[in-house]
Amino acid sequence: MDLSAINPALLLASLMVAATPILLAAIGELVAERSGVLNLGVEGMMITGAICGFAIAVETGSPWLGFAGAAAGGAVLALLFALLTQVALANQVASGLALTLFGLGLSALIGQGYVGIKPPKFARLDIPVLGDLPVVGRVLFGHDPMLYIAIALVAGVWILLRFSRAGLILRAVGENHDAAHALGYKVVRIRILAILFGGACAGLGGAYISLVRVPQWTEGMTAGVGWIALALVVFGSWKPWRVLLGAWLFGGITVLQLNLQAAGVAIPVEYLAMSPYLVTILVLVILSADKSRAPASLGKIFHASQ
C-alpha cells in the first residue's frame, strides 16, 4: 500500500467532478421538494438523462446539445410523474418508484446501440492566469463549464428561494398548499413547473456522468447516485448551500475510496465500494433527529375540493 501515490490536488480536483452529478440532481429535487412534491424518481430521471445526453452528443458531436437533450429527457420523464401525481392524484412515493423502474428500463432500451462508444470530448475551460496558479488553479479553475453551471445553479436557486417573489410563492405552496390555494395561487401549475425543473436538473446530472465523469455508457451506470441525491436534500435540510457542501462531502468519499482502491489498501475493494452508501445512511441517522426544516406539505396530495 502506498498512500503517497495519492496526490491531494488531483484528489480535490476529482472531488469537484465527482460531486457535480449529485449536486445537479439534488438541487433540482430541492426545488421540487420545496414546492411540496417528493419525487423518488430521481434515479430514473438521471439515468434517462444520461442516455439521452450520451446519444445526442454522439449523434451530433456536440456535448452541449447532449446536455440540452439530457435536460429535455429528464423533464419529459418528470412530466409523466407530474401527470400522475398532480393530475391523477396518485401516491407520490409509488409514482416515484414507478418512474425509477421505468427510467431504468427505458434507458437500457435506448442505450443498446451505444455500449462501448466514446462520446465527443467536453473541453475544459481554459481560464488564463487563474488556471495556471499552482494547486488552486488545478482544483478550482481547471474544469469543464458544466461544473461551474452546476454551482451557478445552486446560487440561482438560493437567490430565487430567498429573495424573489416567485420563490416565496413556491415556498408557500410547499408549506401549506391549502392556504396558498386560498390566496389564489395555482398550486398544481407551480408544482408541475417545479417537478419539470427537478427532472431537467436530474437529466443534466445523469449526462454529466455519461459525458464527463466516466465518459461512456453502461446500463444502470448511475448506480444509486439519484438516491444519494435524495438523501442529500435531507442532509442539506432543504437549503441550497448546505446541499453543495453535502455534495462535496459525498464526492470526497467517492473519490477517496476509489483512490484507496487504486493505492491497494488492505481493505477489500467491495467494502470500500460500500462506503458511500454506508456514509449516506450514517448521515441520515445523524440528521434525522431534526425534521423541522422539511416543507410542511411535502408528499401530501393536493385536491381543491369544490
Binding site: 428500463g105 427505458l106 432500451l109 443498446q112
Partner: peptide, 8 residues
C-alpha cells in the same frame, strides 16, 4: 430491456 419498460 423492453420487458422492463413494459413492467414499469
Amino acid at each position: 430491456a423492453a420487458i422492463q419498460v413494459f413492467q414499469g
